[in-house]
Design a protein around this nucleic acid. Structure first.
Lengths: 349, 349
DNA sequence: TTGTAGGCGTTATCAA
DNA sequence: TTGATAACGCCTACAA
């Protein structure tokens, strides 16, 4: 079943090689190789013959053999927690868009955020002789993970993560994004701003918290640590923390939901408590999503281009892989964020 | 940058091979091979020595060489339109969950629904000597695509698609899912049921339309073809068609939104027209999603397990790859659907 | 411009 | 049980 016999005319049971093509075309194997690799200096007529033979026999070069000879797999590994997270799917699409046209195979692998699995995946891509890797690990400070990365003998790029190894890192400007969101709320008179986010031990989380703090400090407002819930990106976490925050004697008047998967949890919690936004609490989310656009009222969002993140990471990685690393390669590349104003915030003034 | 020197102690500039390990362990290269492949019959003490040498040198076998020798890549290709579609991300995760533990690498590739790109991707996986493929092509009746699939000399499984080549196909039971949804609406007194969906030329679309038709016929209701909008899965399409349908002199009293990406378009159209559900129109969507659960009122949905789809496809494919194909392999495997009742439908009686 | 032949790093067969 | 050695299919000097 589903095991065709191919379109091989002289259907011998032996797998086709360049040698067969050479024989069929009446040339040598070297010429076949030159033709398929576009090595200049082959007589057009000969190339013609070879291509005809290739087409007629239906031969495809054995990539394993090519890889072995050239010791390059033309394969890039991309490790993250879970492809079902829309963010990673978008990054994957972006990376694929730059890698595929250049002949590289992008291979993604989900770690479920498990550090041991991350180690195993890094090892996997080493065995598979990937030409490079894009890494979005769970914790930037996990010793064994960082050690494994440090031992990597291939180029890599950290995506939305940063380790102290001097490696190139690509990420969105969450600092500015969060600061801008907070400033917008503060301008509307909010003084108690809650934040729910995850990614502890990553630059993403640090940048967001710092953005909020800097905005508060600049406005001379007091920071209430109890309004910061920083332990997870899951919807369930958002659900519980929203209930806790809104149940406080002195609840926040505005809430920052920073992380794609959090918003459904926040909304569900508000619904079950009979609270509504922006009346009971002003709401800003990150990243932008269908939900933010569709909900009534529509939800103000910190938006950034996740596909660009993947694209830029891939480009930067290829620069390293192909040895184009311009002397002053920036160790950090930032993708801008944008505050999309909608109807989920209420002025308190 | 990001180019470690590895943990290789005797840091020679030459890449490690099994030969180096053999020398270091004082055995022959054949023994090294036997150890890493767990070939029975190696003296434990010798295996010990070899493993120590491997660890000390930090050697990892060259997969390209292994692939070439064994002519197996332990790689499975998965082609679909776009990884950003949540459905494909879920299928990918499901497939990865069965393939990874068994040592197979899952490689996904987005075709953007472009038949030419599908052809190129099929060719790509042939060159890369994939051990098998999971295919979710755009049109089941595209001659060149089907020809390419027919010429495949490797096992494959069609996922949510079906071609007349006798190949195994895995899919959700959209027929029953849609029929059940329609019956539920009919029981509530609806007689004019609109449907928006895409995937023309795929079994998915045929099954859905047939499900609706059978339910209508069984109830002795007349089918209005003008209420069927079957051309695309995009949100924009849903947006336009919803407006058209609801703007009809005699609009549908219920609407089936069959396709993950359609719902936001439907909702946006209703909002802009100042219509609301279930008052102005009853609504059922497929697949279930955060949006369906979070919107107020919550939206009744045809749910199915997309990860299971990926899992089952991968298992069925491995059965073929590893030659386990039980004589009576079912050519079609169906994943059940379930109607999740919520608050988006209004009885007309 | 084209042919020849060595070697890439494994696995697997055959002896020892 | 272990060692030597011939493939696997291609690329690439080097020769012709």
């Amino acid at each position: 079943m589903a095991r065709g016999k191919g379109s091989d005319p002289n259907n011998s049971s032996h797998r086709l090689t360049a040698q067969d093509v050479a024989r069929h075309a009446g040339v040598s194997i070297g010429t076949v190789s030159r033709v398929i690799n576009n090595v200049p200096g082959v007589t057009p007529a000969v190339a013609q013959k070879v291509n005809a033979a290739i087409a007629e026999l239906g031969w495809v070069p054995n990539v394993a053999a090519q890889n072995m000879r050239t010791s390059s797999s033309r394969m890039i590994g991309f490790i993250f927690s879970d492809i079902r997270n829309a963010l990673y799917a978008q990054m994957t699409k972006g990376a694929e868009e730059v890698l595929a046209p250049r002949g590289y195979l992008l291979v993604t692998a989900s770690s479920d955020g498990n550090p041991e699995r991350e180690l195993a995946l890094i090892d996997l891509f080493k065995r598979r002789r990937a030409d490079g890797m894009i890494l979005t690990i769970e914790q930037e400070n996990n010793v064994s993970t960082v050690a494994a990365i440090g031992n990597l003998s291939m180029p890599y790029v950290m995506l939305e993560r940063e380790v102290s190894l001097g490696s190139t890192s690509v990420g969105a400007d969450h600092y500015r994004g969060t600061k801008q969101a907070a400033e917008y709320l503060i301008r509307q008179g909010h003084q108690r701003i809650g934040i729910i986010t995850g990614g502890q031990g990553t630059r993403v989380a640090r940048d967001r918290v710092r953005g909020l703090e800097d905005a508060m400090n600049a406005a001379g407002l007091e920071i209430d640590r109890n309004l910061m819930r920083l332990e997870s990106f899951s919807a369930e976490y958002a659900y519980r923390q929203t209930q806790e925050l809104m149940g406080l004697a002195n609840p926040p008047t505005a809430l920052l939901s920073m992380g794609v998967r959090l918003l459904p949890g926040v909304l569900e919690a508000l619904q079950i408590m009979g609270k509504s936004y922006p009346e009971d609490v002003s709401l800003i989310c990150s990243n932008d999503s269908d939900i933010a656009r569709i909900m009534m009222p529509k939800i103000t969002a910190v938006r950034y281009d996740a596909m660009a993140l993947g694209r830029v990471a891939a480009e930067s990685l290829l620069d390293q892989v192909e040895g184009r690393t311009t002397s002053g390669t920036p160790p950090r590349i930032e993708i801008p964020t944008e505050l999309v104003l909608r109807d989920s915030c209420r002025p308190l003034l």
